[in-house]
């Protein structure tokens, strides 16, 4: 239960919006629900629906619309590489291809250790620093700019270590 788990955050989120429009809190609450597992469970949707006095279908319909919400368990970190036009003009597609080769997975797949899911996404507003990707994980969303495959592999090693330690 979100309210029990993050009472302070939930209260803070609800305080942002007029009480008669508490439905507005659905997006921040979904981020909160996604924080730990990297995806939103059915129970969490139920929970949010109840908190905001809307239907579970309403909540699910929002999860389905926005690409940063996920309803399935995938890698602990989602590595989202921009391959949109401006980045593609600066070698992003090649970068992604090489990364796939190095990781031994295809776009959309997860590394066998469950650490990284590799995705291609649309423009991240970092077109001048291509190749660029963001990681979406337990610690939020972070940008990684002017990347090379080597630097990326180092980052993955570091993530591996830190999650290993966390365990």
């Amino acid at each position: 239960m979100l309210l029990q788990k993050y009472p302070k955050e939930v209260k803070q989120i609800l305080a942002k919006y007029p009480p008669e429009h508490k439905r507005s809190a659905v997006m921040p609450l979904l981020y909160l629900a996604q924080r730990e597992e990297g995806y939103i469970t059915k129970a969490a949707m139920q929970d949010i629906a109840q908190l905001l006095d809307i239907s579970e279908t309403d909540v699910a319909s929002i999860v389905g619309f926005y690409t940063l919400y996920h309803d399935k368990k995938e890698g602990k970190y989602r590595m989202q590489v921009c391959t949109d036009l401006p980045c593609a003009l600066r070698g992003a597609e090649e970068f992604l291809n090489n990364l796939c080769g190095n990781l031994g997975i295809k776009v959309g797949e997860t590394t066998p250790d469950g650490l990284i899911t590799l995705e291609a996404v649309t423009c991240l507003a970092a077109c001048d620093r291509a190749p660029v990707f963001q990681t979406q994980g337990p610690d939020g969303i972070k940008y990684h700019e002017n990347m090379t495959v080597d630097k990326t592999m180092e980052l993955i090693e570091a993530l591996k270590k830190s999650t290993g330690e966390a365990k």
């Binding site: 059915k42 949707m45 809307i54 239907s55 579970e56 279908t57 309403d58 909540v59 699910a60 319909s61 389905g64 619309f65």
Partner: peptide, 20 residues
């Protein structure tokens, strides 16, 4: 007044779902 069906996904993939 029963909001029990809604759209999932977006664009061409938009489809009706129910979660009740």
């Amino acid at each position: 007044g029963d909001s029990v069906i809604g759209f999932d996904e977006r664009g061409r993939a938009t489809q009706i779902v129910t979660f009740s």
